[in-house]
Structure formats: C-alpha cells, structure tokens
C-alpha cells in the first residue's frame, strides 16, 4: 500500500500543484497576462502545437550537441587534471574563474564570432555544462585509496596502469552523476542564448510571444522546457544506473 503511494506520489503532487494554481487564478480572478491558469496554458499548447514542437526540437538539438561537446571536453579535461598535479594546479584557478563568469555575458562575444543562431546556443550550452563534468571526473581520480596505489605501484604498475585499472573505473559514478547536472545546465545555456540571439528555439519563441503579449504561449514555452528537462534528466539517470550499477549496491541486492 505504502509502496503504491510512493509510486503515485510524483503524479499526485504535480496534479495537486496544477489544481492549486488553477484554483488560485480563478478565486482571485488573476488576469491572464499576469498569471495564466493551467487550462489557458494547455489551450495555448494545443493551439500553437506546431511552433512549440518545432522550436522544442531546435532547443533539444542545440542542447544535445552542446551537452555532447561538454561530455567529451569535460571528460578529457577531468582526466588531464586528475592525472597530473601540475596540470591541476595550473588549470583549476583558471577554470573556477571562467566558471564564475555568467554565461549570458559571453553570448554577445559568441554572436560577434559566429553570428546569430544555432552556433552560439550550442557553445553556450557547452560552456555552462562542462564544468561539473570536469570537477567530478577529477574528484574521482583524486580520491584513489593510497593503499590501492601502493599495492599496484609495488608491483611495478605505471601511472597509466593505475589510471586504467583503478582511476577511470572509479571516477565513472562521479562522471555519470555529473551528467544529470550537466544536461540541466546545458538547457539553461542554450535557452539563455536563444533568448538573447537566435531565430528559433524555445527561448526565441518565448521572447517573440512576450513581445506580442501572448502570455499563455510564454508559459507554454516554460512547460515545454520543463518537460524536456525532465525527460533528459531521466535519460541520464537511467544511463547512470546502467553503467555504474555497482556503485548503487542497494539496487542489486
């Protein structure tokens, strides 16, 4: 009984939240341009289904490309940082500095370089998503048990052996865990860029809708983003379970 409630909980809470929202809008007769009711948003979704779908695909595309670049770059940089203390010492402060720059401030530069459109969105997604991957991979490598390292080094293991046999497998749970954060951030990145400088994508669609005072469509864009985010997050969580099940032992018992 209890188990079933827990299984149903995500749906019940979501429905409850929307019901509360709907009720509040009706009871306090909130104007639609302040806060549209869920039913208004639903109407907008149905009415503008075609542009929403098209722009969602565009955002999904830029996000995915940026995310994949972040995975490649983050993995490589994380391994390099975890490999050598000299690289770590040199690069870490630079990376922290770079990560503190709000990515929205980088978009104009990207536009100067690449023009308005898909490329700045992809690059913004990449720039914002790769940091957590680097940090997590490097952490996994940096926390090899010293005993393990001694055992292998005493056998004549080279650094590469230790990395391949221990370091890299060990950092995989950190890596796959970071993908969940990275994919969400990649969405933030591409939407930021789309809002500032693009001709398509959910961000652009929302901006256009806002200038026409089509508030329900703005909210429909938000809903689309939330749905995309949940789906991608779930995909990453699934991937994590598949690849590093050994690190989640309770799941295997």
């Amino acid at each position: 009984m209890n188990e079933r409630w827990i299984k149903a909980a995500p749906w019940l809470w979501t429905i409850g939240l929307f019901a509360l929202w709907e009720g509040a809008v009706r009871i306090f007769s909130i104007e639609v341009f302040i806060l549209p009711a869920p039913t208004d948003i639903w109407e907008a979704i149905v009415k503008y289904w075609s542009p929403i779908w098209k722009n969602s695909l565009q955002t999904l595309l830029t996000t995915t490309i940026g995310f994949l670049m972040a995975v490649g770059g983050g993995l490589a940089l994380g391994l390099a940082i975890g490999w050598s203390r000299a690289i770590y010492a040199g690069l870490y402060p630079i990376m922290i500095g770079f990560n503190s720059i709000p990515k929205v401030a980088v978009v104009p530069i990207l536009v100067i370089w690449f023009g308005i459109g898909t490329v700045p969105a992809v690059l913004t997604a990449f720039l914002i998503a790769f940091f957590p991957i680097v940090v997590n991979v490097a952490t996994g490598l940096a926390t090899i048990e010293p005993e393990m390292e001694d055992v292998l080094r005493a056998l004549g293991a080279k650094k590469l052996d230790i990395m391949l046999k221990v370091g890299i497998p060990r950092s995989m749970p950190y890596f796959f865990g970071s993908l969940k954060i990275a994919i969400t951030l990649a969405f933030v990145g591409s939407v930021i860029s789309e809002t500032v400088a693009a001709n398509s994508g959910i961000g652009h669609m929302m901006l256009a809708a806002q200038s026409q005072f089509n508030v329900p469509l703005v909210w429909a864009g938000l809903v689309a983003l939330a749905v995309l985010g949940i789906v991608m997050y779930a995909a990453m969580a699934w991937l994590e379970m598949r690849m590093t099940g050994w690190a989640h032992r309770s799941g295997l018992h």
Binding site: E147, M148, V151, A154, L155, G156, A157, K165, T244, R249
Partner: peptide
Amino acid sequence: DGPVSIAGMAFQNPSMLPW
C-alpha cells in the same frame, strides 16, 4: 632502486575494487 615487483602487499584496508 624502484618498485621491486617480486613483492605482494596487503594492508589493513582490504581496498578491493567494488566494480
């Protein structure tokens, strides 16, 4: 003058690889 490789080592921490 370097790791001897004819040695086996065991510590208090068994440090088995969980995967």
